[in-house]
Design a protein around this nucleic acid. Sequence first.
RNA 1: GGAGAGAUGGCCGAGAGGCUGAAGGCACUCCCCUGCUAAGGGAGGAUGGGCUGUAGAGGCUCAUCGAGGGUUCGAAUCCCUCUCUCUCCGCCA
Length: 423
Amino acid sequence: MLDPQLIRTQLDDLTQKLFLRGFILDHARLAELEARRKQIQVETEQLQSERNKRSKAIGQAKAKGEDVTPLLETVAQLGEQLKASEMALEDIQTQLNDILLGIPNLPHDTVPIGRTGDDNVEVRRIGTPKEFAFPPLDHVDLGAKLGQLDFETAAKIAGARFTLIRGPLARLHRALTQFMLDLHTQEHGYTEVYVPYLVNADSLLGTGQLPKFAEDLFHIPLQNYYLIPTAEVPITNIVRDLIWKTEDLPAKFVAHTPCFRSEAGSYGKDTRGMIRQHQFEKVEMVQWVKPEDSYTALEELTAHAETVLQRLELPYRVVSLCTGDLGFASAKTYDLEVWLPGQQHYREISSCSNFEAFQARRLKARYRDPNTKKPNLLHTLNGSGLAVGRTLVAIMENYQDEGGRIFIPPVLQNYLGGRTHIQ
RNA sequence: GGAGAGAUGGCCGAGAGGCUGAAGGCACUCCCCUGCUAAGGGAGGAUGGGCUGUAGAGGCUCAUCGAGGGUUCGAAUCCCUCUCUCUCCGCCA
């Protein structure tokens, strides 16, 4: 959520910045609602003040043993008036709040301006795609050849967009999460957390998935739980409604969780293979930091994710998302895209974002500023480190040989009991 | 699932219709005292919002005692619903 002050004081500027990311703000309606809000709120508070004064007087008169009936008469219609005013205020505040909750974050000044993914800017490219002496297969064919990747059985058990992995490949998949967690906890200073995979609506509201993106989520209506679409939700909500100890900043947490996404609206997109699934594993890094540190933190967080790719010796590039491609809550995002020989394309494998105070405002996530001694909103960040399923895909495709064997990257071999390849 | 108890400021903990935005304590900030530390004395201080403004100085004001409704001129305090926590029994990985 944006600072409501911006709507009062810098509506034009705001409208313009939001336009850059493709969001049309209903400027006139907002201005009108805001004017009415101001009038009604002042009115309501005056009435409340009046009521408080008179009630206090009644109490004092009563204490002295005086007759209070004349005083009671003077308050008689005040109650009705107040009730009507309060209802009007509540109504308008609900309207304003609904609008506010639907407004995306403002892009940071360093975010490239553009409309679609084609306008994203490549920041750097690390590693060189391997030249294969044969036409490299994609992971689906490789998995079928190995007999270890089975989409048909998964479809029977659950439906489309699910995967069944067998044997050594399943172990490799598990090894990847262990490797990633070990790296981030042992070398990057993150605290591992185990979190709920089902969350309530408040948590999703806090991180920004609700109310706008309900159709992307799996919802369990009976108990009113939602399956998490990313560990960002449970981890970031650790700070909800808290004043975090300033000496415990920056806070850095990492978790491995499954992620569940309905993928509504992506029909026909990435239908082949395990690139886009209803259920996938991810190792997620989350930080909350002082506002002045958040852009340094974004660079560090991105580097932490990159380290995974570097250790796995996978070629990748870093892309700065343009204003039009930015996620709803993000002020700035770097995507890491790994090279997939089977597709001859770089594909997103991690997304690292700085949300500034956008989530923190919804979450009431604060710290005490040592200078002012006042609570202040934190900045939150997160990034995948990495998406495990896609990492498995990347390893299969980049480490295949002509016979369809998959070599295991050296850093992973210990996690697989010394195994050097899968066949 | 059954029976009971509870939820109050950064933390602990009183309060049981009006003078309580909330005693007391801890932690915190400032001052005094002390050779240093410890101890002691004094002062301050919740959070969020609105209006005004010499616009992070001030002034006025509203809301908030788990959440949401209700009763009342007036609710932390009474009533209803919900959530969560704890204890005992049952069940279970």
